[in-house]
Nucleic acid binder design. Structure first.
Lengths: 251, 251
DNA sequence: ACGTGTGAAAGTTTTCACAGCG
DNA sequence: CGCTGTGAAAACTTTCACACGT
C-alpha cells in the first residue's frame, strides 16, 4: 500500500499506520465540532462516539501521535485539533486545481470542507471553450491549454480529476509533467503514474456495489440454525476495511 | 466491520472477506472493458494490472468465489463477469433514490456507472419547492414531503444522501422508517441507524487530507541516513486501507 | 477514582511460493 | 510448460485488559 521504498520496518516514531492516518480526518471533524461548541475537553469514549469508532481504537491511534491526553481527565480539544492538523499537514496552505468542471467538479468547487481545511481551490480547468471564463463557485474557469502554466504559477502539488474517464489518463500525465505529485481521481479509470506520485480514487459506483452485495445477503437470511427472533439481525457496522483499493501502477 | 452477527468464523463457503468484496467492483470494471474489446480470456497477471492490484491478491480473491479459471490458460472473461455480477447482486434491479439534488446529487443522477450496473435511479428528492418538477438527468425532481410514498411505491431499499449535513440525520431516519436498509452517505456526518441497516460514507475532503499527509512527508525527505540518490523516492502506492469517509455538500 | 497509554492476544489481510491441473 | 489455486508465513489492524499517572 503505501510508499514503496519508504518501507522501513517502522523505525518507530515516524511510522503512523495507514489505517490510523485514514481516521485522523474523522477525529479532526468531530473535534472541530466540539471546538465550535466551546467544549474544552473530551474523553476517548465521547470522542470515539462522535467519530463513529470505538474508544480503544481511538486511543491506540492517538498513541502513535504522542501522549496528548491527561489520565483521569481526557483530551484538550484545542490542543488535539492543532496536533492532528499539524500531523496531517493542514497547517499549511495547499493550492489545488480541479480539472473537469461538470456537475461533480462544480460540486467540489463549492464544497466548504476544502477551504476550512487548508485547501484552496487555486484554479478550475476545463477543456470546453464554452466553459472558459464562466464563474463557478466564484472562480473563473480556465482553459486546459493553460494547465501547465497554471500549475507552476500557483505552485500546485495536488490535482483533482473530475473529467470523463476517456481523458483522465492524459490529464493525469499533464498534471504530473507539470509538477503535481498527488492526485485525487474521480474518473472510473486506473491511472498510471511514475514513482513518487500518489493517487487516491473515489468511485461512486463501487460504494453502491458494496452496499448491493450486503443488501442481497439480507434478502436470503431466513436460515442460520435456530430461527432468528424478531429483527433481521445485522449491525450498522463501520465501513468495511479497505473501502477501496489501489490506483495506479508503474509508468 | 461488516454485518454483525454474520460473524460466523468463516464456515468456509459463504465467508467472502470484506477486503475482497471491496475489490470485486474493480475487477468487474476491468473485465467489462475487456469484454467490450471482445477479449476472450485473461491471465491473473493481466487482469491484475488492469485493475491495479497484484496478481496473488487477485487469485486469492477469486478463490473465495470458487474455481473459475483454467490452469495454464487463465479466466474466461464473460464467465467471470457473470459470476462476479451475481456475487455482488448486480444481476437484479436495484431502485435507488437520491435525496438532495444539488451539484453532487445531479452529478450522481447523471453518472453512467449506475445504470450500467443494475442500479436504477427511481427518484430524485429535494426539500426545496423550487426544485420540484425540474428535470435532472431526465428525471423530474419530487418534493421530500412524498418521500415515504416514493420509497414504498418503488420498493426502494437503497438510498443516497447528498443533502447538507444539518439535515442528513433526519433524512436518514425517514428513509429507514420508510423501509430503506442501505444508505450511501455523502454528508460529512456520522449517521445513527438501527441494527440491520448498512451505511457507507464517502467524504471528499477526507481523501484530500490523506493526500496532504503524504504530500507533506515528501517535502521533508532529505534525510534517511545515506543521502538518497536522484529521485525523491516513494512509490505510487495502492490506496491506503480504509479508503474513505464522508463528504457532501450543497443542497 | 478515573481515563489514558500500551503490551499482548486475536483477528484480518497480504504476500510468498509451489503443488498440481490442463 | 504455464498459470491457477492455495496452504503457510508475514504483515497489519483491531480488541482486550490493566498498569500507571494525575
Amino acid at each position: 500500500m503505501a510508499t514503496g521504498r519508504t518501507h522501513r520496518p517502522a523505525t518507530r516514531s515516524r511510522g503512523i499506520p495507514e489505517a490510523t492516518v485514514a481516521r485522523l480526518p474523522l477525529y479532526l471533524r468531530a473535534l472541530t465540532a466540539l471546538s465550535e461548541r466551546s467544549v474544552p475537553t473530551v474523553s476517548s469514549e465521547e470522542l470515539a462516539a462522535a467519530a463513529g469508532v470505538n474508544s480503544a481504537k481511538l486511543r491506540k491511534d492517538f498513541s502513535y501521535l504522542g501522549s496528548y491526553g491527561t489520565r483521569g481527565v481526557g483530551y484538550d480539544v484545542e490542543y488535539l485539533v492543532y496536533q492532528i492538523s499539524r500531523e496531517l499537514g493542514l497547517t499549511q496552505d495547499w493550492p489545488v486545481v480541479i480539472v473537469g468542471i461538470g456537475n461533480l467538479g462544480a460540486a467540489l468547487a463549492n464544497y466548504g470542507g476544502f477551504a476550512s481545511r487548508g485547501f484552496r481551490v487555486a484554479a478550475l480547468i476545463d477543456a470546453d471553450p464554452a466553459m472558459t471564463g464562466r464563474q463557478v463557485a466564484g472562480i473563473a474557469v480556465q482553459h486546459s491549454d493553460d494547465l501547465e502554466k497554471i500549475i507552476s504559477d500557483n505552485g500546485v502539488s495536488i490535482g483533482v480529476i473530475t473529467t470523463p474517464p476517456g481523458v483522465a489518463q492524459q490529464v493525469c500525465d499533464r498534471l504530473v509533467a507539470a509538477g503535481v505529485t498527488s492526485i485525487l481521481n474521480f474518473a472510473p479509470t486506473v491511472l498510471s503514474v511514475p514513482d513518487g506520485v500518489d493517487v487516491r480514487k473515489v468511485d461512486l459506483s463501487i460504494e453502491l456495489q458494496i452496499l448491493a452485495f450486503h443488501e442481497q445477503r439480507k434478502a436470503g437470511e431466513e436460515h442460520e440454525g435456530t430461527a432468528a427472533p424478531a429483527a433481521p439481525h445485522q449491525e450498522a457496522d463501520e465501513q468495511g476495511p479497505d473501502g477501496d483499493v489501489p490506483a495506479v501502477m508503474p509508468a
